[in-house]
Write a protein that binds this DNA or RNA. Structure first.
Lengths: 358, 358
DNA sequence: TTGTATGCGTTATCAA
DNA sequence: TTGATAACGCATACAA
């Protein structure tokens, strides 16, 4: 069913509520205000105004006050482009996210952005889409964009890109893994430990044969590594391993579900190294008539609304991604302010959230 | 369960795969390349290089070739900040999204960004969080950011903000509603018609008493308007109306579910003006032991992975949000290029996707 | 079609 | 602590 054809051609207008009434538009346009105007009004030179804004400590209190008044009176706002041209740096912090459909990434980015915006930085987001090519293109563009700092929901793997980032000489924040050698700043989780936790959990539940589903590269590979190591220690065998190329949404999980049983294996438990996969597998399993956890136990990684909303919920390896973003924001800020960081790396603990799916 | 304390203190390092090997770092740093360097190499003046890049048609083919070679030889990239200072405009297109947790918004933004990035624009995203205050702050900042164009997943309601946007004299794209008087460009859906479709669908299903859940303002109010109008026409009564302040995620839907029955009403069908609400209500209803659709029929608005993944799926009012984003991107592009648009407004049709929840 | 002169609005640098 | 001067790298305006 859809609207009748006539209606399709003449859709109803939305009577959007307009608020604020008429702006007296007939007023003559206010001329733009420059630093010079403020300076004249305050009876100082432009450079003193500039200093009063950026480094007030270098300006006498008396002039600070006069300048503040002049700024308020005129409504002056510094031109960030001119500022960037001269100083070689904008006040924009760029956050790159590998998949906008991931709630965890969204939370982290939100946490980081709140912290930075409080301090007058602009936080803007770009999407990298798990593609090395796109990532390289973005990193190359960074040289032109001249951001004040950069935040990634991931770590940079290509040495060439790492080198380029280092050359920017700005705070670079990597997250979502715990490498020995971050480029600069890191708020990380150990994906390896995440995999171990999942294996240990399944071992505790008494499973002897398990399956793994995850991306073949990046974090997926790391989670597999930890999972496989701990499975071996616990005497569990991984009877099936499925690698997905790209995981964008739940349907990627649904698609791989049937591969689980393609060999005639009797899979009773699976670790999905990603929550989108876990929920997709869960839903497909249920559609196929399997009982969860009796016929198939599922443990995921990352958590999301859906994993906690389903009944039974999906057991998962979780960490506080909003807190991760906030920590990242604070470290970036400290670094931007030239404060000495007592640690450039921070670890976010993982825990198993046990729900009904295992 | 979590890792043992020792492990918490000494998390396992992730052995992130590094690719690309050593960059010969001992090479002397390449000096930066400016337009003047290219010009000298090509035997022309800097301004000719500038023109060759931006408006090749104004440069002789012969010089174009020489300049192209010089650019490749030197690896020259124009400084976008200097460019922006001089021309008063960056090559950044800003996309503002009201809620990063909405899949529809994410899809639209992705569609728009793909189109614009193909043409050399940077597409960056900011979040507005349904707050007038934040929205006003952002719009005020736009004057400094000097983007080439702006895309909103919504329409701007405050006249003051509308006026400020108009003053920017850049393409302004509004979406997600179908107002009579957009600021500039619009790729819209009629929220009013969406509400009507929902009402008509419930009427067709034979319901006589229905409930509404949605945000009290913005699109929620528009959808209610259409819903209420069509309910009246069809002789259906709205026995319960719940307004939510802010809808961020599924839990907002879960929370309001119980209000449905607070008055002792026997609600048999509900229109949730937003998919996050619909899925939350659905899950809460199921938890409460209600059968869907027998005990409670639910129709949503917007669709998402979850609505289509549940069983029964959630009936919803849908439109192609990725296509919306793409159309928006193309219109913005045309406008940036100074092409005459034969229409500044485009309508996206809505349809009812009937699943098992009604 | 090409080039010259100039300036975008701010801040680095240096001198006072 | 303050100010004069120059410059950031490019594109507009105008002339040729």
């Amino acid at each position: 069913m859809s609207l009748s054809p006539e209606n399709e051609f003449e859709p109803t207008f939305d009577n959007v509520l307009r608020m604020g009434g008429n702006t007296q538009n007939n007023e003559t346009e206010k001329p733009p205000v420059f630093i010079e105007d403020v300076a004249r009004l305050a009876g100082v030179s432009p450079i003193t105004v500039s200093r009063a804004i950026r480094t007030p400590s270098k300006v006498s209190v008396e002039k600070q006050n006069r300048i503040r008044e002049a700024i308020e009176a005129t409504g002056y706002k510094p031109d960030s482009i001119a500022r960037a041209l001269r100083s070689g740096r904008t006040n924009i912090v760029l956050g790159f996210i590998s998949n906008m459909f991931s709630q965890q990434f969204a939370k982290a980015v939100r946490g980081c952005s709140l912290i930075l915006e409080e301090s007058g930085y602009q936080f803007l987001i770009g999407e990298t889409t798990y593609s090395y090519k796109k990532e390289s293109a973005i990193i190359s563009d960074l040289q032109q964009l001249k951001p004040a700092a950069v935040f990634f929901t991931g770590v940079i793997e290509l040495e060439e890109n790492r080198e380029q980032l280092r050359k920017l000489k700005i705070p670079i924040m990597e997250t979502w893994a715990y490498p020995r050698d971050p480029i600069d700043l890191l708020v990380g989780i150990s994906n390896t430990d995440g995999g171990k936790l999942a294996a240990r959990h399944l071992a505790n539940k008494g499973y002897k044969e398990v399956a793994f589903i995850g991306r073949g590269g990046g974090r997926g590979a790391l989670r597999y590594q930890g999972f496989a190591d701990e499975c071996e220690r616990s005497g569990i065998s991984i009877v099936k391993k499925i690698h997905c190329k790209e995981v964008i949404d739940i349907n990627d999980g649904r698609k791989v579900f049937h591969e689980l049983y393609a060999d005639g294996n009797m899979i009773k438990a699976v670790f999905c190294a990603n929550e989108l996969l876990a929920t997709g597998v869960y839903l497909a399993a249920r559609d196929a008539g399997l009982r969860i956890p009796q016929d198939l136990a599922i443990i995921g990684f990352g958590d999301n609304d859906l994993a906690s909303s389903l009944q039974p919920g999906i057991t998962t390896i979780r960490f506080d991604s909003e807190a991760l973003g906030q920590h990242a924001g604070r470290m970036i800020l400290a670094s931007l302010r030239g404060e000495k960081l007592n640690q450039k790396t921070r670890y976010m603990p993982l825990s198993v959230i046990e729900r009904g799916s295992t």
